[in-house]
Amino acid sequence: MAFHDIRFPASLSFGAVGGPERRTEIVSLASGYEERNTPWSHALRRYDAGMGLRSLDDLYTVIAFFEARAGQLHGFRWKDWSDHKSCLPSAAPAFGDQVIGLGDGQTRSFAITKAYRSGGVVYQRPIAKPVAGTVRAGIGGSEMFIEINYGVDHAAGVILFHEPPAIGAEVTAGYEFDVPVRFDTDRIAVSVASFQAGQVPSIPVLEVRV
């Protein structure tokens, strides 16, 4: 399987339905208590690409995209309109949005992450597919500048500074990002008559780990 560094048409993912999915294993004990565990440290997201289709031209575009990816074989980028920034959806990414590490005087490479906070609990999500041209970075509260101070590996979600941040300095980042996904089916079944009547096909899309 290869990953094609191309985004599913954002205008068609706008109306898609989907979100994060966790896997929890639950064992009910004789006492009535439960034991809960998960084999996943990170969620996987599922979407339905069919829900964003509004015309036969849209359907044609999706079929062409599907054929070029050979069905489930190759992955691609997906814009999740409900969660695609380092900040609130209504805001613009800023260099101080997310703390992605602390300087130790030696490390120059920092993986991009996003923190989700609730009730004192913080979950750190790896961001593997930042969008080119949107990444901003900072060190110790001061903005750094791309090419002058750092570069970005957009295929792996890594910021590489030209000089290692000082010991204890917060390394921060702001960005937009895509979700790495693949089609979760090798078949698209559609009736043109049904589609024109308002019934859209189901085209499942599944996040992949990269």
Rank of each mutant, 00 (worst) to 15 (best):
A2W: 05
I6P: 06
P9V: 06
P9F: 04
V17K: 15
V17W: 10
G19D: 10
R23I: 13
I26K: 11
E35I: 10
R36D: 08
N37Y: 12
W40L: 12
H42F: 13
L44R: 08
R46W: 12
G52V: 08
S55Y: 04
L56I: 12
T61D: 11
A64W: 06
F66A: 05
A68F: 07
Q72S: 14
F76Y: 00
R77L: 14
R77I: 07
K79P: 01
S82V: 13
H84V: 05
S86H: 08
C87Q: 07
C87R: 02
L88I: 06
P89C: 06
S90N: 14
A92H: 11
A94H: 05
A94E: 05
I100L: 00
D104Y: 03
S109V: 10
F110Y: 11
K114R: 15
Q124L: 09
R125K: 15
R125P: 06
K129D: 03
P130A: 03
A132N: 11
A132H: 08
G133Y: 07
V135C: 01
M144W: 04
F145H: 12
I148V: 09
G151S: 11
H154L: 12
L160Y: 06
I167D: 14
E170A: 14
G174F: 02
G174V: 05
Y175Q: 11
F177K: 03
F177M: 08
V181E: 00
R182T: 14
R187D: 13
A193Q: 11
A197V: 08
V208N: 02
V210K: 03
